[in-house]
Structure formats: C-alpha cells, structure tokens
Amino acid sequence: MIKPTQSSSSPKLAWIAFIDMLPLCLAVLPWGVLTGALATQAGFSVAQSQALSLLVFAGAAQLSAITFFAAGTAYGAIFASTFVISARHLLYSLTFRQHIAQEPWLTRVAVAFLLTDEMFAVSEAHTKRAGTFSVRFALLSGLFFYIAWNLATAFGIAMATLGQSADSLGLDSLGLEFAIVATFIAMTFGELRRFPVLLAVVVSGSVAIFTKPFFSDSYIIFAAISGMIAAYCCDKPDVSAGIEVNPEQVQ
C-alpha cells in the first residue's frame, strides 16, 4: 500500500472497478468463447490456445492471427497484422503516461500488461468522476477483464475439445455486444455539450464507419486520430483546458 487516498478503501474500490467493468466483460464473452474455440480448431494445442489469451491478451489481434495461422500464412505477416491492430495501445500508453511515469517499475509493467480498450475506457471514466487517476483502479478493473477474457477463452477451448461447435450456444446471436455500445456512449455523451468533444465524436465515428470495410485492421486508430485532431483544431485552450492543463506550467 503506498498512500491511502481519500477516495475509497480497497474493497470498495475493487467493487466499483468490478461493477464498472461488468458490462464490458459480458459483452466480450461470445468473442472470448469464439477465440478459444477457433484457436483449438485452427490447430493450436489446448495450452497454446489458452496462452494466446493469457499472454497476447488482445481479442482482435488474436482472432486475426488465428485466421492467418489456419490459412498457413507466414509468421512475418501475422506479426505485421498484430502490430497494426494493437497500435492503438500506443495512444493509450501515451495518454496514461502523465499518470504512470512516476510509478515504480513493477507497477508500470503490471498496468501495461493489463492495458486494453476496456481498461482504458473505464479508467478514463473513473478519472473524470474521481478527479484523479487511480493506479489501483486501473489494475483492478484490468485484472477483472483479464480473468473474464481468459475464462471465456477456456470455455471455448473446452467446447472445441469436446467437439461442440461454439455456435451451438447461440451466444453470437444474443447481441451481447450492445453492452459495448451502451457503456461507451454512457462514458462519453455527458460531455457532448463541449463543442470539441462533439466534433471528436462525430468525426471519429464517421471515419470509423466508412473506413472499416477497407481497413479492418487499422480503422480504429485512424478514426481516433482524425477525431482528436478535429477536436484540437477547434478547441480554444483558455476556455476548455482550464480543468487540468495549464499551458504555462506544463512542460
């Protein structure tokens, strides 16, 4: 324990992290099951299929790699695709840098390991709510997601090993991914009154919708950067940045 913050005690913080992450854990359940089942069917051993989720821990990159692996694609091409798909984590890493850079090495290693779209999302929302970034919240929410993802994968592997099709559960048709839509809207639309935020949302969303069919690996990072630049360009520093950024002091 470093220094107890005034915000909340450990069990309470863990409970908040769990509740915040729960909809996203449920939303990726079908995806996790599918990832486990497909890996095993593609020729990865049981241990290797689970290791993908335990070590790579990146859904889109895993699914893409499994498809390539089944098709006998060269590893170099799989690595290139992994890099492009996971490049958006560079953006999360850079965004968190101001909060994380002062932490001990082991903390930084652990936060990086658990850094996903979902952990970034709930951590940013928690930071806005609480007023400060909490490393413990980031670690706890990230860990919950890691456990959920790996349990879902294990379930998929078990089904494939038993000769069951992952589709036979009908998980795909449940529409659980709507929870992603609801959660991410709930985290962002409260600030839509600020014009730069509105612009970030409209530009990023439109670019994503129209580029996804052509750049299925990289559309998220392209769209996000477009939205950020659009917001930045119409943002008046003195009006909007008053909360945390003080242009004269930050260096």
């Binding site: 996804k212 559309y219 950020m228």
Partner: peptide, 28 residues
C-alpha cells in the same frame, strides 16, 4: 507530452471509444 499534445490527448478517449462502438450500430 507538452501542453499541446496533452490537449490533443485529452480527446483520445472520446475519439477512440466512438471509433469502436459506431461501426457496431452503423454498417457500411
């Protein structure tokens, strides 16, 4: 990151979360 990049990054969560959910609802 200097003040300007920090300001750019303050929009990263809005932009990236929208880029993830929008294509789930709107298909092209």
């Amino acid at each position: 990151p200097g003040a300007r990049v920090q300001r750019l990054l303050s929009y990263s969560s809005y932009a990236v979360l929208t880029a993830i959910w929008a294509p789930i609802v709107f298909e092209v």
